Simulated scan of single mutants.
Amino acid sequence: MSIDPRVALEALTAALEEHLAAASARRGPGDPAVEAAFFAVADAFEVYDDSLYEAYGEVTGLGVLDDDGDDDEEEDVDDEEDLEILQ
Protein backbone atom coordinates (compact mmCIF):
# COMPACT_ATOMS: atom_id res chain seq x y z
CA MET A 1 0.00 0.00 0.00
CA SER A 2 1.50 3.32 -1.02
CA ILE A 3 1.26 6.49 1.04
CA ASP A 4 0.16 9.80 -0.46
CA PRO A 5 3.27 12.02 -0.64
CA ARG A 6 1.32 14.93 0.87
CA VAL A 7 0.47 12.83 3.93
CA ALA A 8 4.09 11.70 4.20
CA LEU A 9 5.25 15.32 3.89
CA GLU A 10 2.92 16.35 6.71
CA ALA A 11 4.36 13.56 8.88
CA LEU A 12 7.90 14.70 8.03
CA THR A 13 7.06 18.30 8.90
CA ALA A 14 5.56 17.19 12.22
CA ALA A 15 8.67 15.12 12.97
CA LEU A 16 10.90 18.11 12.23
CA GLU A 17 8.83 20.28 14.57
CA GLU A 18 9.12 17.65 17.31
CA HIS A 19 12.88 17.50 16.77
CA LEU A 20 13.13 21.27 17.16
CA ALA A 21 11.10 21.14 20.36
CA ALA A 22 13.27 18.32 21.75
CA ALA A 23 16.50 20.07 20.77
CA SER A 24 15.43 23.34 22.35
CA ALA A 25 14.54 21.53 25.59
CA ARG A 26 17.68 19.36 25.59
CA ARG A 27 18.67 18.22 29.09
CA GLY A 28 22.29 17.57 28.22
CA PRO A 29 24.38 15.58 25.78
CA GLY A 30 22.83 12.29 24.79
CA ASP A 31 19.30 13.38 25.72
CA PRO A 32 17.10 10.40 24.78
CA ALA A 33 14.25 12.68 23.68
CA VAL A 34 16.50 14.37 21.12
CA GLU A 35 17.80 11.01 19.90
CA ALA A 36 14.26 9.65 19.53
CA ALA A 37 13.22 12.79 17.65
CA PHE A 38 16.24 12.42 15.35
CA PHE A 39 15.28 8.86 14.43
CA ALA A 40 11.65 9.92 13.92
CA VAL A 41 12.82 12.54 11.41
CA ALA A 42 14.99 9.97 9.62
CA ASP A 43 12.13 7.49 9.41
CA ALA A 44 9.60 10.10 8.27
CA PHE A 45 12.03 11.35 5.63
CA GLU A 46 12.53 7.88 4.19
CA VAL A 47 8.77 7.34 4.00
CA TYR A 48 8.34 10.69 2.27
CA ASP A 49 11.16 10.07 -0.21
CA ASP A 50 9.83 6.58 -1.02
CA SER A 51 6.26 7.83 -1.45
CA LEU A 52 7.46 10.68 -3.69
CA TYR A 53 9.28 8.17 -5.87
CA GLU A 54 6.35 5.75 -6.02
CA ALA A 55 3.87 8.48 -6.93
CA TYR A 56 5.92 10.65 -9.29
CA GLY A 57 9.22 8.93 -10.03
CA GLU A 58 11.05 11.74 -8.22
CA VAL A 59 13.32 11.93 -5.17
CA THR A 60 14.43 14.83 -3.00
CA GLY A 61 18.13 14.43 -3.65
CA LEU A 62 18.69 14.39 0.11
CA GLY A 63 19.75 11.47 2.24
CA VAL A 64 19.97 10.35 5.83
CA LEU A 65 23.52 10.00 7.12
CA ASP A 66 24.40 6.81 8.91
CA ASP A 67 27.31 6.09 11.21
CA ASP A 68 29.20 3.95 8.70
CA GLY A 69 32.76 5.28 8.64
CA ASP A 70 33.38 4.13 5.06
CA ASP A 71 30.77 6.52 3.67
CA ASP A 72 32.23 9.42 5.68
CA GLU A 73 35.66 8.97 4.10
CA GLU A 74 34.19 9.01 0.59
CA GLU A 75 32.07 12.07 1.37
CA ASP A 76 35.11 13.92 2.73
CA VAL A 77 36.92 13.42 -0.56
CA ASP A 78 33.90 14.65 -2.52
CA ASP A 79 33.56 17.68 -0.23
CA GLU A 80 37.24 18.57 -0.73
CA GLU A 81 36.81 18.36 -4.51
CA ASP A 82 33.71 20.58 -4.31
CA LEU A 83 35.65 23.15 -2.29
CA GLU A 84 38.39 23.24 -4.88
CA ILE A 85 35.87 23.93 -7.61
CA LEU A 86 34.32 26.78 -5.62
CA GLN A 87 37.66 28.49 -4.96
Rank of each mutant, 00 (worst) to 15 (best):
R6P: 07
A8C: 04
A8P: 06
A8N: 01
L9Q: 13
E10Q: 12
L12G: 02
L12S: 01
L16A: 12
L16E: 11
H19M: 12
H19Y: 13
H19T: 05
L20N: 08
L20R: 10
L20W: 02
A21S: 09
A23W: 00
G28V: 02
G28S: 04
G28N: 05
G28A: 00
P29T: 09
G30I: 03
D31V: 02
D31N: 03
A36Y: 00
F38L: 10
F39E: 14
A40L: 09
V41D: 03
F45S: 03
E46L: 13
V47E: 10
D50W: 00
S51T: 01
L52R: 07
E54P: 00
E54Q: 12
E54T: 06
A55W: 07
Y56H: 13
Y56M: 12
E58F: 09
T60L: 02
T60E: 03
G61P: 07
L62F: 12
G63T: 11
G63H: 10
V64Y: 10
V64A: 08
L65Y: 14
L65E: 12
L65S: 15
D66C: 09
D67P: 02
D67H: 13
D68F: 10
D68W: 08
D68A: 12
E73H: 05
E74I: 07
D78K: 12
D79I: 12
D79Q: 10
D82T: 03
L83E: 11
Q87G: 14
